[in-house]
Simulated assay, not measured.
Amino acid sequence: MKLLTLNFLSCAVKACKSSSASFPLHPKDCELESAEIAPNPKLLFNILPRIDWDALVVTASELGFTSLKATPPTNEELEGDEKMMTDLHTLLLETQIMEGSLVCANCGHEYKVKEGIANFLLPNHLV
Rank of each mutant, 00 (worst) to 15 (best):
K17P: 06
E79W: 01
M98L: 13
K28C: 10
I51C: 12
P24D: 01
H125V: 05
E36R: 08
S18N: 09
A70G: 04
N106F: 15
L102F: 03
K112R: 11
K83V: 15
E110C: 07
V58D: 14
P41D: 11
P41A: 14
A105T: 04
G80F: 02
E77A: 15
Y111E: 09
S10A: 03
C30K: 02
L25R: 08
L56E: 12
T71D: 13
P39E: 11
L32S: 05
P41W: 02
H125Q: 15
T71Q: 15
L91M: 00
K42C: 11
A21T: 01
P72V: 13
F45E: 14
C16I: 06
I117A: 13
E82N: 13
A70Q: 03
D29P: 06
P123W: 10
N106D: 13
N40T: 03
T95G: 08
F23V: 02
L44T: 11
K114I: 07
I117K: 02
P49M: 04
L43K: 05
G64K: 09
M84S: 13
C11E: 01
L88N: 02
D81M: 02
H89L: 07
L9V: 12
A118Q: 12
L25E: 07
M85K: 05
K114L: 06
L43F: 06
A60M: 03
L63F: 04
E94N: 05
R50G: 08
S18Q: 14
L78R: 00
K42Q: 13
N124K: 12
F8A: 00
N124S: 15
T66C: 06
E36G: 15
T86G: 00
K42E: 14
K14S: 14
L48E: 00
H89E: 09
M98W: 05
L43V: 09
I51K: 10
E99M: 15
L3Q: 08
L43M: 05
V127S: 12
E110P: 12
P27K: 00
V113L: 03
K69A: 09
